[in-house]
Amino acid sequence: MTPVGSLATPDEALVASYLGGPARTGSRFTFWLGLATLIGLAAVAALGLLAVPADDVQGDTVRIIFVHVPSALGAYAAFGLTALGSVMWLWRRSVWWDVTAHAGAEVGVLLCGLTLVTGMLWGRPTWGTYWEWGDVRLVTTLILFLVMVGYLSVRALGGDAASVATRAAVVGLVGAVNIPIVNRSVNWWANRTLHQQSSITDGKLEDLTLFTLFLAFVVAAMAICWMMMHRFRIGWLERQLQARDLHDALAARRAEANR
């Protein structure tokens, strides 16, 4: 984990440390993490697509939970990091946390989008519909997704780094408020959604199905760590390069003035 920690070193140090290093954001740690993730993924696919028995009612579509549920929990986790990072930016002006928040939003939007798509692909054969506009679980998830897309677009609006971070942090926190609403919606408004309540906490899954689902959580967590680390390093490097470019530009102006 040292690579991420070492990135917290102030400013020019990082760029300097990369100058002599390999031309990639990967490290030995992320290499092995990535490899382990791929192996885990193969195991989940073998179990989830072949070994796990079909459900008595759903049949084979039950196999979609192995991608749907980890995506959903992964999106919560990534957006949770965005929320934490946003708080730390607003409270401590921590650039490290701001970069983490940005990384979390990007990874979270990917996972939240996958949650929506895989959910629709499960809904059609199970419920008989891809989407229902009156369904609270579906619509609150879509709202969460859109708010976090908004977070990314606010960041893309540009401006000076500090005010971009502050604006984005506010959006990130608005999005985070939605996380518990999405999660609890199936319990709070049980008659407003087709979506079932949690199958795990109620212990309603068969043994092998449950084991495969937990393995899928572990693999998803590893994949998310890998993506977060790479995305964080990119964000951090972008900051350093911006700082360096600004520094260079100032130096050039100064040289210009001295002529």
Binding site: R63, S71, L114
Partner: peptide
């Protein structure tokens, strides 16, 4: 649907 969901992911 199953392969579609896995494939997309």
């Amino acid at each position: 649907y199953v392969l579609g969901a896995w494939g997309v992911t």
